[in-house]
Amino acid sequence: MVISSGKRPGDNLANNPLINPGERIMNPAAGGGVTQDLSENIILTTVDDLYNWTRLSSLFPLLYGTACCFIEFAALLGSRFDFDRFGLAPRASPRQADLIIVAGTVTMKMAPALVRLYEQMPKPAYVIAMGACTITGGMFSADSPTALRGVDKIIPVDVYIPGCPPRPEAIFDAVIKLRKKIANESMQERGEFISTHRFYTRSHEMKTVAPILTGEYLASGTRDMPPKELMQAMGMPVEKTADAKLEGAKATADKQEDKA
């Protein structure tokens, strides 16, 4: 070992009575200063690893829940299970989320909304199917006319969590497994990870229509009074009829009291 200059560990040994003047220890027991400084201050890694490490350390899940599984997921958000320590910060917008935990039954009516949410998430996006309903339809797979038999029929799922519903610890397990999966990804293979469309899509020629929900639900004209036919069928407006009958009923009640 050639030590060129500067303060060397060997220098301390100059006054050592066991060593004659002019003698040097070639390999002293103390560590070399330069190599130690290097190993403490320089990290050798790949861009893939660095990129994956940043991604897996801050997975932002979409705040999404359709049924009882979300109760367990909500427990995970709280202080007892505290999933912020995994770097998971729930996001209310799919544009800011890169993980969706499908918590709860998905129906045929909800399915288009779920696909739309997934498509709005910036890729690469990850999907965790939580609970029996999202894996096979669960207890609804027997005879439900509307429950989707597994969300993997419409969106690609990375991790499945069995359970009905799964415990929060199981979601941790799934998140850790997903982190391992993300850690193994490589930018060179990115082309292979582009998700395939597992659902039927066609290019629509969309037409703009007026929104259905105008906030005037209870104020809509059909709620002012019954239709004419109904009023005619009843003979007179309902309220008046009711009042008249009420009087009749009162009279009857009085009679009954008199009898008693």
């Binding site: 045929m108 005879d143 993997d152 029929k153």
Partner: peptide, 14 residues
């Protein structure tokens, strides 16, 4: 007498 439709999404997973 209702018969559930046999959509792909409604077919059993297994």
């Amino acid at each position: 007498d209702y018969i559930s439709p046999d959509f792909y999404e409604l077919q059993d997973a297994y």
